[in-house]
Write a protein that binds this DNA or RNA. Structure first.
Lengths: 102, 102
DNA sequence: CCTGGTACCTTGCAATCCGAGGTACCTTGG
DNA sequence: CCAAGGTACCTCGGATTGCAAGGTACCAGG
C-alpha cells in the first residue's frame, strides 16, 4: 500500500465514520484497517488535532474489555467540513481518472 | 484543492502522461494544471528523483520559443512501475469510496 | 501471576508539496 | 534598442502528515 496516497485521505475516512456514529480511537483504527493499512500512531494524533480544531467533542465511557474508551462525537463544524472534504475528494479522484484514462 | 490529496498521486499522473509520449517538465506542469493545481517546485524535483531511480531517461531539444527543453522518456522500468502504481491507486480509491458510501 | 488483547498516548524520522527565489532564452512593442 | 512578459530550467526551506517504536494501564483466562 502506497503510504503517500493516504495523506489527507485518512482525515476524510475518520470524518465519514464519525458522521454515522460516535466511535473511539481504537475502533476507528480497526474499522479503517479492514480496507486500508493504518497505524495507531497515525490516528491518535489526528484525532487530537481535529478535536482541537473543533470538529469533534469527546467523552469517556467505561468498558468491560479494557481501559475506558474515549469516544469522539462529530460537531456541526465537523459535519460541514466533512461535506466539503468529501466533495473535494470526489472532484480530485475524478481528475486523476481523467488523466489516467486519456 | 486539498494539498494532501496530491501526495504520491502526482507521481502517478506524471507516469501516465509520459507513458503516452515524451514530454518536458514545463509541459507536464501545464498538462496537469488543467485538472489539478500544481507548482513547478513540485515537478522538477520529482522528475529528477524519478530519473535517478531509473524510471525515465532525458534528452535536450532546442526550442524556438525559449531555452532548450529537457524531454523525459519512460524506460521499461518506468512502464512496469506505472502499471503497478495505477493498480494500487484504483484499489485505494475503491477502498475510500467503500468507506465513504457505507 | 503472567501473557495477550484492549485502549490510550508521545516522539522523532521520512516523504513530498509548495512558495519564493533565481537563471537564462526569445519575441514583441514602444 | 531595450524593457516586459512568456517560456523553461532549477534550488531551498518550511509545513504537513503517516509511521515505527516506544510507553502506560486495564482486564480476562490459563
Amino acid at each position: 500500500m502506497n503510504v503517500q496516497f493516504k495523506k489527507g485521505v485518512i482525515e476524510l475516512l475518520v470524518l465519514s465514520l464519525l458522521n454515522r456514529k460516535d466511535r473511539y480511537g481504537y475502533e476507528l483504527v480497526e474499522a479503517i484497517s479492514q480496507s486500508i493499512e493504518i497505524a495507531e500512531g497515525t490516528i491518535y494524533p489526528l484525532l487530537k488535532r481535529m478535536t482541537d480544531e473543533g470538529y469533534f467533542k469527546t467523552y469517556l465511557q467505561e468498558s468491560a474489555e479494557g481501559p475506558p474508551r474515549k469516544y469522539y462525537q462529530m460537531t456541526t463544524k465537523g459535519r460541514t467540513y466533512f461535506d466539503e472534504l468529501r466533495k473535494e475528494w470526489r472532484e480530485f479522484s475524478k481528475s486523476v481518472e481523467k488523466i489516467l484514462g486519456e
